[in-house]
Design a protein around this nucleic acid. Structure first.
Lengths: 156, 156
DNA sequence: CTACGATCTAGAGCGAGGTCTAGATCAAGT
DNA sequence: ACTTGATCTAGACCTCGCTCTAGATCGTAG
């Protein structure tokens, strides 16, 4: 139990692609863009060898990207981590700001969801009753602007 | 109270931009792309006049876009509505499919959120204790791959 | 040795979703 | 009439985030 340093065995780019869900192209792209923390090791022949720590970081990247963090922020974060000790406060700020954005996003999505659900309900009801007129009619009389002959308040 | 047909007074594009949050450019773009249900009325001079129903539809569009519906789907939906009665089942399907995507998205975001929250917690703790080493250290010894001398399991 | 598949680099290309420009026209205030 | 600001059209342009060549090289199985 002396040193747990060795990250199992290093992985080739294809294997990393499989376990992160990124394409090999994206992996190389991320690297070029400086989104990775450390330089990726290479074999004598020049092939990339990813350690499990590299993969861990990539998995975080995937999560952050999924939740809408722009590559620029991801890059900034990677830079902070790469630079090492002393900037943890900034890392914290970055992550926390992102978390707030995620919260806002969840809120917004939930609102959308309820709007949609309500609308689905409206359609379902009309379908069930076999009558589906008066729902967002295609403005049959452009000149008078009279819409579908119904109250125009709740049709969207 | 005979007919509530008249949608108050028609709005100019700038006013619609204000109340939908879209730019005037985007509004014209949406129109060109066929994302609107009816043709927008024009003044004698050729300026667009939006009815409140147009604005309602645009607000729905905004919600659907916010929740990630691609323009292509929005267009399809607009086409269905424009075409009128008889395709309500398809509209329902479209909306419902989208709602499912939104649900999945919320799920994913919540997962991301918890990952981030946990990570924020880790940083906060380290900051509080004034010691911030061993967190995603910048792989100081590329040759041995020894990382920061800590257990490599929970540092991301 | 020979194949064959996985990787390599540099750089071009792409789709989505707008955004902006140019130059003209409209409408309202003074 | 003149000025000012909002709108008009057509079309070029932009950012983001990959994705895909092309042509060479590596490495392993037969």
């Amino acid at each position: 139990m002396a040193a747990i340093e060795t990250p199992a065995e290093p992985l080739a780019i294809g294997e990393v692609a499989e376990r992160t869900g990124l394409t090999v192209h994206a992996l190389r792209f991320y690297e070029r863009e400086g989104l990775l923390v450390g330089p990726i090791q290479r074999t004598a022949g020049g092939r990339r060898r990813y350690t499990t720590l590299d993969v861990d970081w990539l998995q975080i990247c995937v999560k952050l990207r999924e939740s809408g963090m722009p590559l620029a922020d991801l890059k900034r974060f990677a830079e902070l981590v790469r630079h090492g000790r002393g900037n943890e406060a900034e890392r914290l700020r970055l992550l926390d700001a992102h978390r707030q954005r995620v919260d806002a996003q969840i809120q917004a999505l939930e609102e959308c969801r309820s709007v949609i659900t309500w609308k689905v309900g409206v359609y379902a009801e009309h379908l069930a009753r076999g009558e589906a007129d008066g729902l967002w009619a295609p403005t049959p009389e452009p000149r008078t602007q009279g819409l579908s002959g119904g109250s125009a308040s709740d049709r969207p």
